[in-house]
Simulated assay, not measured.
Amino acid sequence: MPPTRYEETAAHLRQRIEDGDYEPGTKIPSVRTLAAIYDVSDATIRAALRVLEADGLVKTMSKSGIVVRERSGRRRLTRSSQISHDGRIYRFPAAAEQGEPWESHGTPVASIEPVPADVAAIFGIEPGTPTARRRRVMSPQGEEPWDVIDSWIPPRVMAQAPQAAEPVTGPGGYLARIEEAGHGPLSWEETARASMPTREEADLLGISPHMPVMRILRVGYSALDGQAAECSAYAIPADRIEIHTALTRGPSARWPVSYS
Results as ranks from 00 to 15, higher is better:
P2M: 12
P2G: 13
P3N: 10
T4W: 04
E8D: 09
E8G: 11
E8H: 06
E8R: 11
H12C: 09
R14F: 07
R14E: 12
Q15F: 02
E18P: 00
P24F: 08
G25L: 13
G25R: 05
T26R: 11
K27A: 15
I28K: 04
P29W: 12
P29G: 05
P29S: 07
T33W: 01
L34Y: 03
A35P: 00
A36K: 13
A36Y: 00
A36R: 15
I37N: 03
Y38E: 12
D39Q: 15
D42V: 11
A43S: 15
A43R: 15
T44D: 01
I45F: 03
I45R: 11
I45N: 06
R46E: 15
R46I: 12
A48Y: 02
L49C: 05
L52D: 05
L57F: 11
V58Y: 02
V68T: 07
R69T: 14
R71A: 13
G73A: 15
R75L: 13
R76T: 06
R79P: 00
I83S: 05
I83H: 03
S84E: 13
D86S: 08
G87Q: 09
R88T: 07
Y90F: 15
Y90V: 03
F92R: 08
A95C: 05
E97M: 15
Q98A: 15
E103V: 10
G106K: 06
T107N: 07
T107A: 12
P108F: 10
S111G: 03
I112Y: 01
A117R: 08
A121Y: 03
A121E: 10
A121F: 01
I122M: 11
I122C: 06
F123K: 03
I125F: 02
E126K: 03
E126D: 09
E126H: 00
P127C: 00
P127Q: 04
T129S: 01
T129V: 00
A132V: 15
A132I: 05
R133W: 06
V137R: 00
S139I: 04
P140C: 11
Q141K: 13
W146S: 02
R156N: 01
V157S: 01
Q160R: 08
A164D: 05
A164N: 02
P167V: 10
P171I: 08
G173V: 03
Y174D: 08
A176I: 01
G182L: 05
H183A: 04
G184L: 04
S187L: 06
E190D: 12
E190T: 04
R193Q: 05
A194C: 02
A194T: 11
M196S: 09
R199V: 12
E201L: 01
L204M: 13
I207Y: 05
I207A: 11
I207S: 05
H210Y: 11
M211Q: 13
I216V: 09
Y221D: 00
L224D: 08
D225V: 02
G226W: 11
Q227A: 14
A229N: 06
E230I: 05
C231I: 06
A238K: 09
D239H: 07
D239A: 03
T245C: 09
A246V: 15
T248Y: 14
T248L: 15
G250S: 14
S252E: 12
R254Q: 14
V257Y: 12
V257K: 14
S258K: 14
S260N: 12
S260Q: 13
